[in-house]
Design a binder for these strands. Structure first.
Lengths: 256, 256
DNA sequence: CGGCGAATTGACGGACGTCAACTGCTGTGG
DNA sequence: CCACAGCAGTTGACGTCCGTCAATTCGCCG
């Protein structure tokens, strides 16, 4: 598939690509190609050898892990995000599967070229290390979320985070199907329904994918959000070149 | 506290320090100092600003997270390990607390100097990125372990991993108190006891801190270990300079 | 010898998964 | 255009897993 200049520019705008020199950027993207996948396409299976860094330019992708006939969604990515960066840096097998949720445009960058450029351009290498650090911290948050909170608490905090990401408005629409959300939060769809029902006592009104938080203070008293677990940064644009560009597993980058 | 040359050599032997040039190594360790802490000392609290990279040279350290009067142990580190690397790279707050379990010798390296050296020595910077990648993948494994397996299964796999780490012998001794293990595995001490009791049907014999796996095949049929979650690498020495030096949260390095 | 904390065991309750039935929406084909 | 199949979501009943509380034992250290 032909690669448009506009696509390359969107990659260039990623914080950790924007610091790369022009020649580094050319080297990294030299052998890259763009591919379009339909909804439900499997991009990668757990255990697969990873030869490319994936950059989601359009669409929606989920990362999942499985064991013993069970599986769980570890992250849902929206554009522009990269994934399986860690596996590429180590030239190792993937620990997660990747699957498109919607039709998606994905740029595939040679892992070999990435590793070479990291060692050639120290500023670029450092930027990648920062990206990896942010991803690591996202997972630390995820584990604390999982081990320390119950299902209702995880949902309550998820909703507060979503509200923040939408600029603080009281009504917003869920970014994906409820069954996806359930798996992401580590529960069954049935239990997610019941958790929503529980939260109706705290001013949470659900109408299909529309959620409105009628009494934010009451909900927060239940959820007890904290910056040490929840990342409330608005994701208005992916261009934020703040040094600490930490993100949550949801709608974020993921090292892989 | 005076720093011995032998301590510096142990740091130098860490895989991601061993690739650094002599001058880079001198720069990074220039302002470093060694500190001895008693058992139970708090090294770092969640939310603290992190100014130093910590290198555990002797002793035992636990990393924990807390929320709403509950806390959980995220990792137990043994020498030689570094921790809070990710926070140092981003110059950010710590997401985990750190506490000594035993009396510990800890080398503290200037975060400022580390970041400077990463950008000055691209090979060193790449090695740090590899270290971060390994830590990231350790957390991916931990989340899959937590979300996909039940308590008994987590314990069974933990025991198999320990057996592997001890070279495959059928009897070994647990590396820390059972209450620490319980928290690490995401359960209460009471439930850990019951999980051990359950595993007695599968040939697991417990005698204080001594565990013997009498029927490995039976236990494995229950545990269903997989390289996509469990890291069975023996940790005979920290010197293994394999590119993929992934480690598990237990007895490992942790980015922070 | 006495006390403290770790570990174990039992009883109980709450949180969560499973199974099943039912609703409502959507897309398909007669 | 409507009938119907299929799937997401919800709700209820039930069982299991796990956390909590309490009592007891054991070993260690003062």
């Amino acid at each position: 598939m032909p690669m448009r200049d506009s696509d390359l520019e969107r990659v260039r705008a990623l914080p950790w690509f924007s610091v790369a020199s022009e020649s580094t950027f050319r080297d990294v993207t030299a052998g890259a190609f763009l591919q379009r996948f339909p909804a439900g396409a499997t991009l990668l299976l757990e255990g697969d050898r990873v030869d490319f860094l994936y950059v989601l330019l359009d669409g929606l992708v989920q990362l999942e892990g499985s064991w013993n006939d069970k599986d769980t969604i570890l992250a849902v990515l929206r554009p522009v995000s990269t994934f399986i960066l860690a596996a590429v840096v180590l030239d190792a097998d993937a620990l997660m599967s990747a699957q498109t949720i919607e039709r998606s445009d994905i740029l595939m960058i040679s892992g070999e070229a990435l590793r070479r450029s990291m060692q050639a351009d120290p500023v670029f290498g450092f930027a990648v290390a920062q990206e990896l650090s942010g991803c690591y911290r996202g997972l630390v948050r995820a584990i604390k979320n999982q081990k320390l909170r119950g299902g209702v608490e995880r949902l309550a905090n998820y909703l507060i985070t979503q509200k923040m990401r939408h600029g603080g408005v009281e009504t917003f629409t869920l970014p994906h199907e409820k069954r996806v959300l359930a798996s992401l939060l580590g529960m069954t769809p049935e239990n997610l329904s019941r958790a929503f029902a529980t939260l109706s006592d705290y001013g949470v009104i659900v109408n299909g994918p529309e959620v409105t938080i009628a009494r934010p203070v009451v909900l927060e008293r239940l959820a007890k959000p904290t910056p040490l677990i929840d990342n409330h940064q608005p994701i208005t644009s992916e261009l934020t070149s703040k040094a600490e560009r930490e993100r949550w597993p949801v709608a974020s980058a993921a090292s892989g």
